[in-house]
Design a protein around this nucleic acid. Structure first.
Lengths: 153, 153
DNA sequence: GTTATACATTTGTATATACAAATTATACAC
DNA sequence: GTGTATAATTTGTATATACAAATGTATAAC
């Protein structure tokens, strides 16, 4: 389905506009698919994201600002996101002894277990879309997107 | 900047995962850029979207469900979106005389004026990103994205 | 006509997000 | 130490979004 069909556009668009809409819409399709996947686990996409970052710390705690900067979408509210994860006992939160302004967030075993259970489903989620194009096209798509968003001035 | 640099990933990711993250992140970059653009006009991205759909009607009113289905992100709340536009006097809203379940939403002159003022800025917004890659690459990117999101099962 | 069903939209509620202001702790100049 | 600036996080508030339930209208069966 072309992007013009998706938005039922009557007029012809140029490629610059189409690319923008294609990226916005494709992100949407991916996100909807992903939300379906995590819905049974009572996790939002952003909450999942935070858990992934925490697991990546390999046992070390992460400060709020570290979580913040690793997130794709700058969320502006890491506190309340971590609040939710705390309620579900997926993380612990403690004041950093060295610098009492900082907070140390650590993933719990329960959090790790949920991620483990989700891992194969997330892999499958990634594969489903990737399978639509060849490995060469996949690499090309990555390169084009990286080039596309890099302002060269 | 590669997607790995963006999220400060320490481990190597495969291309299937990278494409997902690249699309999500690129959408984010585009959206942030666009939000900056419309901020002075007291419009949200979704509100702008609705105005664009209404202008596309060329004088004919659009029902709520028509607006709904033309939107990129299925918003689940067209009513309150139109409420906001009504407050700013960018649209009118009337019960459809033929079918009183339906609502006819029409863009006002004030709404058209705002869009007109935004048009060159939106064009520029689209061009800025498109300029980073060649016209051929632009077309290729469109084709790849459309192929990528089309499930062939 | 009455009842049932489907349709279009709205409302309630919980959660998410954006942005600015407030809080608390550290660091540095003097 | 005192004052000032900076840093990390939290809180307040307004708005946005998601989902389900509610409302009001039309359509069709009988």
């Amino acid at each position: 389905m072309t992007i013009e069909e998706v938005i039922k556009s009557t007029v012809k668009m140029d490629n610059a506009k189409k690319v923008i809409l294609n990226i916005m819409y494709t992100q949407n399709v991916i996100q909807d698919h992903f939300n379906e996947l995590i819905k049974p686990y009572d996790l939002s996409g952003e909450q999942y994201n935070v858990l992934r970052i925490l697991r990546g710390q390999k046992g070390n705690p992460a400060n709020m600002c570290v979580i913040q900067e690793r997130m794709l979408a700058k969320t502006s509210n890491t506190t309340r996101l971590v609040d939710k994860l705390l309620l579900k006992e997926f993380v612990t939160r403690n004041v950093c002894p060295d610098n009492r302004r900082k907070i140390e967030v650590l993933i719990t075993q329960k959090g790790l277990d949920v991620l483990k259970e989700l891992d194969p489903k997330v892999d499958e989620h990634e594969r489903v879309f990737a399978q639509n194009i060849s490995p060469e096209e996949l690499e090309l798509l990555n390169n084009l997107l990286e080039k596309y968003r890099t302002q060269q001035n």
